[in-house]
């Protein structure tokens, strides 16, 4: 009895061992590593001269089209010393007394999910908000701080809607490597401020709103 049991154990252990060995050898990739010499350095910052008359007024209403980065842009505005408020779903009356509508551009599937809306509905809603602002004569400033992850199929639709309606754009260089925003800004003849970092975005916002340096 005992030896039968042990023989079974031998078989099982051997089977397990063979399976283990073959699994370990399973998926060695056959490709060779190609090392690259080029190191990626942050893109050079390109500052565009803003016309003197182009000054955006506070208070700012911060919102998003695409449900991404609203809070970050709001915090950036606050750090730039701009009196601002974040409202995700802007209604007509929210625009009363507002100096500038600051719109965070880019899409977030998680953000859309959190809001329970799909991309098409969000584009429609965004277009309505932008139209309300222009009827109410509230200048629109489009801000893109999300870089590469906030570009692509989902984001571009939102970015385009905002950039086509904005009076000026602030864009982090990483999100404009293909010149997407440059093309729209040049065609529409609106200023585009390309920044390398959030620190520069804060600076650019302070400049646009005419906030004193020491703030």
């Amino acid at each position: 009895m005992k030896s039968t049991w042990l023989l079974w154990m031998t078989t099982i252990c051997l089977a397990a061992l063979i399976t283990g060995i073959s699994a370990a050898q399973e998926t060695e990739a056959t490709t060779e590593t190609v090392a690259t010499d080029e190191t990626e350095s942050p893109p050079d910052t390109l500052m565009v001269v803003i016309p003197d008359e182009m000054v955006f007024a506070a208070p700012a209403l911060v919102t998003t089209v695409g449900r991404a980065d609203g809070t970050i842009v709001h915090v950036i505005c606050r750090r730039a010393g701009i009196d601002s408020e974040l409202i995700e779903e802007v209604q007509r009356e929210d625009l009363d007394g507002i100096g500038t509508l600051v719109v965070a551009m880019g899409g977030s599937t998680k953000g859309l999910g959190a809001a329970g809306v799909d991309a098409d509905t969000e584009v429609e809603r965004g277009e309505e908000v932008l139209a309300m602002a222009s009827v109410a004569d509230v200048p629109i400033l489009g801000v893109h701080v999300g870089g590469t992850p906030r570009r692509g199929e989902l984001s571009d639709e939102f970015c385009e809607v905002v950039a086509e309606a904005a009076d000026a754009l602030i864009v982090k260089a990483g999100g404009n490597e293909d010149g997407f925003f440059t093309e729209i800004a040049e065609r529409r003849d609106i200023p585009l401020i390309e920044v390398g970092t959030n620190a520069e975005a804060i600076e650019a916002l302070a400049d646009l709103f005419g906030v004193a340096e020491d703030q």
Binding site: R67, D69, T71, I72, S108, K110, G111, G113, A114, G116, G146, G147, P149, R150
Partner: peptide, 9 residues
């Protein structure tokens, strides 16, 4: 990047 926590996950 910063993502909001989805309500449905």
């Amino acid at each position: 990047n910063l993502e909001p926590s989805p309500l449905n996950l």
